[in-house]
């Protein structure tokens, strides 16, 4: 049984009878050849060009949730998220113009103002992708007023807890639970600033009958939002090696 693989825009992938075309594009002035079913992000990374990302994780489907991977494409009036935009013939991409970096900074600053990030007392201090991005993008402070919203912590699960104060709504947990574990325990409830990750039908995680307790969500979470119980400040190390490994094993198993 071969499941039909889809590329990020949902179109069926080309097959042997309908092979993938190669094309030429330009990223940061560099001439690059790419497959037509690849995203700008993936092509850039293969060619040693770094684009910052937060919601993207190798091994999961793309969501386009964080917008940190935006790039400038010649002829396009708005900035495009490179993790969900496919390359095209003769496309000219700029990954680090002043306009792009300024918007990235703003997006990152807004992520910090929307929830309560207190790195100094966070389980993920020193191990957090959001915190690392603040260094990478040179964010020494935020230019917007902090919102200081009131958020809860759900520690009802016997081994894990979720602290919504630290969540960036990247949906990695939701995707890994659905696509890899196959349990689909998590989802997003609400919209915009009131959006929140929930377990089951917004029931306490500890009462969930669908959660297998695999811990995959905890380890893909880029921030301190999901953690193992018993971890203190800066102790929560995330181990993601399982993901590419599992994907590879499953691909082999399908043959």
């Amino acid at each position: 049984m071969t499941e039909q693989r889809l590329h990020p825009r949902g179109k069926p992938l080309r097959t042997d009878v309908n092979p993938v075309r190669l094309l030429m594009c330009k990223i940061d002035g560099k001439d690059i050849s790419a497959r037509e079913d690849e995203t700008i992000l993936s092509v850039a990374r293969q060619n040693g060009i770094n684009i910052p990302t937060l919601c993207h994780l190798d091994g999961l489907s793309e969501r386009g949730a964080c917008r940190l991977c935006i790039v400038e494409v010649k002829g396009a009036p708005r900035l495009l998220p490179s993790c969900v935009t496919l390359v095209r013939q003769d496309m000219e991409v700029t990954t680090n113009s002043e306009r792009v970096t300024a918007y990235r900074r703003k997006i990152l600053e807004l992520l910090f103002t929307e929830r309560n990030h207190v790195c100094s007392v966070c389980v993920s201090n020193g191990q957090c992708e959001l915190q690392a991005l603040s260094v990478e993008l040179g964010m020494s402070h935020v230019h917007f007023d902090y919102i200081y919203p009131r958020h809860s912590i759900d520690a009802t699960h016997s081994r894990f807890s979720v602290d919504h104060n630290r969540c960036v709504l990247c949906a990695r947990c939701i995707r890994v639970c659905d696509e890899v574990e196959g349990a689909h325990v998590m989802d997003v409830m609400g919209r915009g600033i009131t959006a929140k990750v929930i377990t089951d039908l917004s029931q306490p995680w500890g009462d969930s009958e669908t959660c297998t307790g695999c811990g995959k969500c905890v380890h893909v979470c880029p921030t301190g939002a999901l953690s193992e119980k018993g971890k203190s400040v800066a102790e929560m190390t995330k181990r993601r090696q399982f993901l590419p490994y599992l994907q590879l094993m499953r691909k082999e198993g399908q043959k």
């Binding site: 207190v118 402070h141 902090y146 200081y148 009131r150």
Partner: peptide
């Protein structure tokens, strides 16, 4: 110079802001 996280982000002192 904003010196340290409390000056820069309000940090731990701001944890009371939710209440």
């Amino acid at each position: 110079i904003s010196f340290g996280d409390c000056a820069v982000t309000a940090n731990v002192p701001a944890m009371r802001n939710q209440f």
